[in-house]
Write a protein that binds this DNA or RNA. Structure first.
Length: 274
DNA sequence: AGATTCGCCTGAGAGC
DNA sequence: TGCTCTCAGGCGAATC
């Protein structure tokens, strides 16, 4: 499932191939995504030049000439493929953008939690992007910040960390992993965690995400990117606790425990995390 | 406002 | 082999 590192890896992979290029054809094969792709999507997108490819949280933002934006979200199962023009279509392919130079950018999304939105410059910031917390890899995100925002909050720190209004891009897997590295139990109330522990958590989040981005980068180097069979979604990051219930902790050998917090599986080491 | 729950969706895996 | 059931997860929306 695409978390921030994966989305960033995708961004880096497609950016050099489509920046400055014009979209010469748009084809929507299946409009059913999280929100239905509107009828005029093709007409409005065709002929536009992509000036940059940015990322905010898990959203990919394509800045178009004229200032409008194409917003893509990969949801749970979304993938982007960069393919040669004319590549055969497969089940669950939703959207094709054909660029100058015969490059095809294809959105594939079996579970359809993803999104494709065209947002006019005149309408300011999109509602989905407004109110998002800081990027975890920028200086705005810090232990001090987490400490300040968490005062008085009774939610489990894991849910707090996964709240995009607090900080973006930390999904279920990396939340568990970060808390393990920081030595904090996922179920503890966010408001009862010390500033020092939040400093550790800040570092842990950064470390986990950076490691994963590096893994993605490694995958990119073998140019699986332009591979028509396009496998660029599963960089296997070494996971210390996630989905390892009953297995020994990598540090102390204690059995990893699973606990459901906020309807989501959480994993922790009962000895390393307090 | 904060906390909690629900719903969307398909594929994978388990159990029979 | 093939059916049915359960689970996974991002995140907006609804509800308490």
């Amino acid at each position: 499932m695409p978390e921030l590192p994966e989305v960033e890896t995708v961004r880096r992979g497609i950016e050099p191939h489509i920046t400055g290029r014009r979209i010469v054809a748009v084809k929507v094969h299946d409009r059913r995504l999280r929100w239905p792709v509107p009828r005029d999507f093709e007409r409005k997108l065709r002929g536009r030049r992509v000036e940059s490819v940015q990322r905010r949280a898990k959203y990919l933002l394509f800045a178009l000439d004229g200032g409008d934006r194409l917003i893509l979200h990969l949801g749970m199962s979304g993938r982007l493929f960069l393919l040669p023009a004319g590549e055969r279509r497969q089940k669950h392919d939703h959207l094709d953008l054909l660029f100058e130079g015969q490059r095809l950018l294809r959105l594939h999304d079996p579970r359809r939690f993803g999104a494709a939105l065209l947002w006019p410059a005149a309408m300011g910031q999109h509602k989905l992007l407004r109110g998002l917390g800081p990027e975890p890899l920028l200086p705005e995100f810090s232990g001090e910040y987490l400490f300040a925002r968490s005062r008085g909050r009774r939610v489990a720190v894991k849910n707090f960390l996964m709240d995009s209004r607090i900080v973006v891009g930390v999904g279920n897997i990396y939340a568990s992993e970060s808390l393990f590295r920081a030595g904090i139990r996922p179920g503890r109330a966010a408001g009862r965690i010390t500033q020092d522990q939040y400093r550790k958590l800040e570092n842990a989040v950064r470390q986990v995400l950076c490691d994963a981005i590096e893994q993605g980068g490694t995958t990119l180097k073998d140019s699986s990117f332009t591979n028509p069979d396009g496998e660029f979604g599963d960089f296997q990051v070494r996971l210390a606790v996630y989905d390892r219930a009953g297995q020994p902790c990598t540090v102390c050998k204690t059995k990893i425990r699973r606990q459901v917090i906020g309807q989501r599986s959480s994993f922790f080491c009962p000895r390393c995390q307090t």
